[in-house]
Design a protein around this nucleic acid. Structure first.
Length: 284
DNA sequence: TTGTGTTTTATTGCCTCC
DNA sequence: GGAGGCAATAAAACACAA
């Protein structure tokens, strides 16, 4: 620890120092209380050999005053600080001799100068951070405004869509146009189906097709037609219109089935069902 | 001139490093 | 354990408005 130096030979301990250097007047009293002899005994002046050479310096100064460095001294110290803000012992001694100061004064000056530099640096850092924060804040604000604008656009577009939906009848979601299934031999490859007639028995039981081939299942009013050719858009068989031979001569029996789209089936109970009639044949 | 705020010089106590 | 750095602080010096 660096030894303290108290003017007028007052004790270097912080307690004493605080007591009678609390203000100028007290310090003065401190001096009058302590005899010069006693003071010189307790004087911890210039504890390192380095500092001994300049003892007269403090005797020339009026010791109760703090000594301000001259502008030349400060200039040189500043120059030295710019080169290197830490002070190695050799440089400290050289600078002290050059400036006619105590090495300790040079060390103290550097210490205080580093503290000032640090404070300034903190201020600079704060300014940089603040400006960066302000920039971020302003871009955040504009993004939020843009977001609000887009949200309200979405709302108004949705409202328009709802109005249009009421005006224009909805088309089946299936984008494939489904024609009635041809009533000839070509039907077989399309459906690949041979429907066993369970309908003639009067029951509405299952009509099961050959295993492994695409099927037509006419199970009940909620039965589904599974037909790949219809793009998977086919819903349940809604109604079976005819289960009797329609009088054609090809030896097959035909029936008409009403097919609804899946979506329509879900809304089945709510309103009118959109779908289409098609006819199917079966081998009786 | 004086009161007040700021800057500069110096001290103290604690901490880290060698 | 000594040297040196740092934070906190005191106090003198200085600047400046009223």
């Amino acid at each position: 620890m660096e030894s303290g130096r108290i003017f007028f030979g007052a004790s270097a301990s912080s307690g004493n120092n605080m007591l009678f250097l609390g203000n100028t007047e007290l310090a003065f009293r401190g001096r009058s209380i302590m005899s010069m002899e006693e003071a010189s005994k307790r004087r911890p002046f210039f504890t390192s050999p380095d500092e001994l050479y300049d003892e007269e310096y403090y005797e020339k100064q009026s010791p109760e005053k703090k000594h301000r460095l001259s502008s030349e001294q400060v200039h040189l110290l500043e120059k030295s600080f710019e080169e290197e803000n830490k002070l190695e012992p050799e440089r400290k001694t050289q600078l002290a001799k050059k400036l006619g100061l105590q090495p300790r004064q040079v060390a103290v000056w550097f210490q205080n100068r580093r503290a000032r530099w640090k404070t300034k640096q903190l201020e600079r850092d704060y300014d940089v951070l603040k400006s960066s924060y302000d920039t971020l804040l302003s871009s955040y604000d504009s993004i939020m405004k843009e977001n609000e604008k887009l949200k309200s656009e979405v709302v108004s577009l949705n409202e328009k869509l709802q109005v249009q939906a009421k005006e224009v009848p909805e088309e089946p979601l299936c984008d494939k146009k489904v024609d009635p299934i041809p009533v000839d031999e070509d039907m077989a490859p399309i459906f690949g189906t041979r429907v066993e007639d369970h309908l003639s028995s009067g029951s509405v039981g299952s009509a099961v097709v050959d295993e492994g081939s695409p099927q037509v299942v006419v199970d009940s009013v909620d039965s589904y037609i599974l037909a790949d050719n219809y793009g998977g858009c086919v819903g349940p068989v809604e109604r079976v219109q005819s289960e009797e031979e329609d009088g054609s001569d090809d030896g097959r029996s035909y029936l008409d089935v009403f097919v609804v789209s899946e979506t329509e089936h879900q809304n089945h109970e709510e309103g009118e069902t959109l779908g289409w009639w098609t006819n199917m044949y079966y081998v009786g």
